[in-house]
């Protein structure tokens, strides 16, 4: 060990745990119902490095004994639940909830050990984002020095230029002082700062002994999806997704914490909804663009219908459209393409 540490080196891998690439179960959450007798698990699934899939990934849920290895689970065994958010009763003797996520030719296995009794999970109320106004391609700060980075300050922002540095903090609705946030994204580089805060570089870069090794490769302009995983006590895991932008964003709106691009700028008021047609777009972080977007009164939109009850999702949807349904495999993009829906934009920060 000692001589190896002195003389040896390890070539870094291209991908680390922060990178949402390929087919991956990015997060699991198993929040209990109010009476704590059941729970409705959800999973954030990345498909081909995207927060959406043409068709929903098949999700099968199984209760297991905590000492059992999920790798040995018989994939042909009848599951205890299927789909994106099944209502599951928690058995007394099996508290390991396993998931097999399947797409043609591939599967991914995951699990979460449910606390006894099942507990509520911390709820993410939002993100605080600020631009640290620190270009990385010219005199970058010591990125591994927590004290030095803590001294950096910035202004609230939703976008940063290429090779810039954003600071993101998860806001928890009910305190959650014991929680730790684990950050992932579809691009960029992360540098954690404290249990709920991290700095995100809008560039690809490598560090060697604390110094930037090689070139700082700026990200191309556009939105990047971020998934924050809140890890608390056993079984108390939550996740939330949002987007950050490299360079000023194009036309679009924030809804349910996610960025939904539009084909033309819209300017909704605080009591407004926006109605339009979902059109498939691979370069959209949510897989679709809202085209022909028009602003209407939210009450009027409610009376007219949100359009989500006719979306061909695995579980019937209602209420304003939520782009996050693609991430949690409630819906597939293919069957949403061409569908008219209405959304409630998030309040301005």
């Amino acid at each position: 060990m000692w001589v190896a540490a002195l003389l040896a080196c390890q070539l870094p891998f291209d991908v680390d745990r922060h990178d949402l690439v390929g087919f991956r179960v990015a997060a699991l959450s198993a929040p209990a119902t109010a009476d704590l007798g059941a729970l409705t698990p959800t999973a954030a699934v990345i498909v081909d490095g995207r927060a959406w899939a043409p068709s929903p990934v098949g999700l099968s849920w199984y209760w297991m004994h905590p000492d059992d290895d999920v790798a040995d689970l018989d994939a042909l065994a009848p599951p205890d639940g299927t789909g994106p958010a099944p209502l599951l009763t928690v058995p007394a003797d099996r508290r390991r909830l396993a998931l097999i996520a399947r797409r043609p030719g591939e599967e991914r296995r995951a699990f979460v050990d449910v606390a006894s009794p099942p507990a509520t999970v911390p709820r993410v109320s939002g993100f605080a984002v600020s631009d640290l106004q620190t270009p990385l391609d010219a005199n970058p700060p010591p990125l591994l020095d927590l004290e030095a980075r803590n001294a950096l300050d910035g202004a609230d922002a939703t976008w940063v230029g290429p090779s810039g540095l954003l600071r993101m903090k998860v806001l928890l609705a009910d305190g959650g002082d014991e929680a730790i946030v684990r950050w992932t994204s579809t691009a960029g580089t992360w540098f954690e700062l404290d249990p709920t805060t991290a700095d995100w570089a809008s560039a690809d870069l490598l560090l060697d002994e604390g110094e930037i090794d090689g070139a700082v490769i700026p990200l191309s302009p556009g939105p990047v999806t971020v998934i924050a995983i809140v890890v608390g006590a056993p079984g108390q895991t939550a996740f939330a997704a949002t987007e950050v932008h490299v360079d000023a964003p194009g036309p679009g709106l924030w809804t349910q914490g996610r960025w939904l691009p539009t084909d033309a700028p819209v300017d909704p008021g605080p009591d407004d909804a926006v109605r339009g047609t979902l059109v498939a777009a691979d370069d959209s972080p949510v897989g679709v663009v809202l085209t022909g977007a028009t602003v209407q009164d939210a009450a009027e939109a409610r009376a007219q219908g949100w359009g989500t009850d006719t979306l061909a999702c695995l579980i019937a949807r209602e209420g304003p459209f939520d782009p996050g349904w693609f991430l949690t495999q409630h819906c597939g993009r293919a069957l949403a393409d061409g569908h008219e829906v209405a959304v409630i934009p998030d309040p301005a920060p």
Binding site: R17, R24, V25, A27, L28, S29, A30, A43, D69, V70, A71, L99, R108, R109, A110, F111, V112, D113, R182, I229, V231, P234, G235, T237
Partner: peptide, 13 residues
């Protein structure tokens, strides 16, 4: 590996 969603960690196979 198998993903441990409770710890955001991976259990190797």
């Amino acid at each position: 590996s198998t993903y441990d969603g409770g710890r955001d960690a991976w259990v190797p196979r």
